[in-house]
């Protein structure tokens, strides 16, 4: 098993227990009601990303990610820079793994990958929403069923950030997006960074290679 792939596999299995907890902050009031769902793509899109990942101990790896989305459907493939497909799956209210080379032949890895893609690309289902603001921008706070919270923070530079908190109100994921060129229509972020747990945890950096509306 090539070590770099082990690292990628471990991304989705890493425990958050030994990291400093970040709790759901109180919301400062605002009269604004921003449209936070505007950060999400509409319809069917295909993305290719260059992926860089790193673990808390400093180990790093690279891969290429292909994602085709049409809410709620996700098709994804993870491959090496040289083109070897390591993992391919389709999610349509149920997960079907099409190809998985060890150590990726694991439901836990597949489930974690799909959940992270859902977090990044699909809007929350909840209609339970509060609005607020902080120094970074305006916030939409979604209370999801069974407890998780999701803060969508819209910054003034057209970037955005997602903070997801578990039922214990401890942050378990954050996603930071750097916007692409200004355009009339929705454009995907040119760069995304997903962090598990906190800044000391693993990170997944996604640099956009191509995006296509299908």
């Amino acid at each position: 098993m090539k070590p770099v792939y082990c690292l990628f596999f471990m991304l989705f299995l890493v425990s958050c227990a030994d990291r400093q907890a970040v709790y759901l902050p109180p919301l400062a009031g605002t009269t604004e009601m921003p449209d936070c769902r505007k950060i999400y793509p509409q319809g069917r899109w295909q993305f290719v990303h260059s992926l860089e990942f790193s673990l808390a101990d400093g180990k790093k790896g690279n891969a290429v990610g292909v994602t085709v989305i049409d809410d709620p459907v996700i098709e994804c493939a993870l491959m090496t820079v040289e083109g070897l497909v390591l993992f391919a799956a389709r999610y349509d209210r149920g997960l079907k793994i099409k190809r998985a080379i060890p150590p990726f032949d694991n439901q836990e890895f597949a489930g974690g990958l799909i959940r992270d893609l859902q977090l990044i690309f699909f809007p929350p289902l909840s209609e339970d929403i509060q609005y607020g603001k902080n120094d970074n921008g305006t916030i939409c706070r979604y209370r999801q069923s069974a407890g998780p919270w999701l803060d969508i923070i819209l910054s003034t530079d057209q970037g955005w950030r997602l903070n997801q908190y578990g039922p214990d109100k401890i942050r378990n994921r954050s996603v930071t997006a750097r916007p692409g060129p200004v355009a009339r229509q929705w454009q995907p972020p040119e760069y995304l960074e997903l962090t598990a747990c906190d800044a000391a945890g693993y990170t997944l950096k996604m640099t956009l290679v191509s995006a296509e509306k299908l």
């Binding site: 295909q46 290429v64 292909v66 491959m79 820079v81 083109g83 391919a88 290679v209 296509e212």
Partner: peptide, 15 residues
Amino acid sequence: VQEKHLKILSRPIIS
């Protein structure tokens, strides 16, 4: 030129 063809891709990834 490396063409990566996948069924889910509308066009190959070119390297």
